[in-house]
């Protein structure tokens, strides 16, 4: 008990390094900076037009309306965008989790030459860092030639390639932590590599796989660059449609805010569920390799 108290004291000491009042002021300011924009987004989504186009702006809306959401669906293709976003994100998550875990499993427990493992691991690291824009023009051209323009498939392929390196790196870590004795035992029992991957080792790292999958879901849900390059009309996800508000239709803030809520909300729920895994996933992505 005493030990715990001492520990807390020490860390308090650190967090008050600018003095207690300064600490409180800065943290409250930081929280307002983070949270107020979301208050603004949500209230704008429910404001009537006279209130979101008002000068001075209306901070506390007096009339609440759902019209913006209805408009977003009826006039601005929000439902289509939502379906596309879900298909792209789910498709990417499934393919990336499957292919990524297979590759990671093979690198850790498979029968590959040692040198190959090192080369691949460092190559994934490089792949993770290079800017996606550099292949944009050739990809645009190749996808056009393949007749995959404006298709969900094209976006799933591209998003899978962006997310694979991170998933492989994270899954390598999880497979390494899984007890090898079980793997060995099932090997002696005559299980093939495929059986061990499917029934023995992957079930042991299930929670890791789910966390990585969630991360992939969020990244491909948020993806914009390739979505805007490779879609014309029918495969447009929400991110492209909301960007279109600004470039084509001027500022129609109500429906735009409504759509913003729909883009942000699922991500917030996932984050709430997976906080800890998120932090470790993101930091591993930045620090490990």
């Amino acid at each position: 008990m005493k030990l715990i108290k001492q520990r807390t004291d020490s860390s308090n000491y650190l967090s008050n390094f600018l003095g207690f009042p300064t600490r409180v002021v800065i943290l409250i300011l930081a929280l307002i900076m983070v949270l107020f924009p979301f208050y603004w987004l949500i209230t704008n989504a429910f404001k009537v037009e006279q209130e979101y186009f008002a000068s001075p702006p209306v901070v506390f809306p007096t009339i609440i309306t759902f019209q913006n959401f209805i408009d977003a669906v009826v006039k601005y293709e929000m439902f289509k965008g939502l379906v596309n976003s879900v298909l792209i994100a789910v498709g990417t998550t499934v393919t990336t989790s499957l292919f990524g875990s297979m590759a990671a499993y093979s690198l850790i427990n498979g029968a590959l030459p040692k040198r190959i493992k090192g080369v691949l691991a460092s190559w994934f690291l490089v792949q993770k860092m290079y800017p996606a824009i550099v292949v944009a023009v050739p990809v645009f051209y190749i996808i056009r030639t393949l007749g995959l323009m404006d298709s969900i498939t094209a976006l799933v392929i591209m998003n899978t390639s962006f997310n694979l390196p991170l998933v492989i790196l994270l899954m390598i870590g999880f497979y390494q932590e899984a007890p090898y004795e079980v793997e060995e035992q099932s090997m002696l029992d005559g299980c093939s590599l495929v059986q061990r991957y499917l029934y023995v080792t992957t079930p042991m790292v299930k929670s890791g796989l789910i966390a990585t999958g969630m991360l992939t879901f969020v990244y491909s849900w948020n993806e914009f660059l390739y979505a805007v390059i490779l879609t014309v009309n029918k495969a447009k996800p929400l991110t492209v449609i909301i960007a279109g508000f600004i470039t084509d239709k001027g500022l129609i803030w109500g429906p735009m805010a409504a759509m913003g809520c729909v883009i942000v909300f699922p991500v917030l729920i996932i984050m709430w569920l997976m906080q800890r895994d998120f932090i470790s996933g993101i930091s591993a992505g930045a620090l490990k390799g």
């Binding site: 991110t239 735009m256 883009i263 917030l268």
Partner: peptide, 19 residues
């Protein structure tokens, strides 16, 4: 709470701030 800005779509935060 601090995690929120970094996980939402950059397109969404751009829209938000533009408003």
């Amino acid at each position: 709470f601090l995690l929120i800005p970094m996980i939402i779509a950059p397109v969404a935060s751009g829209t938000l701030w533009k408003m």
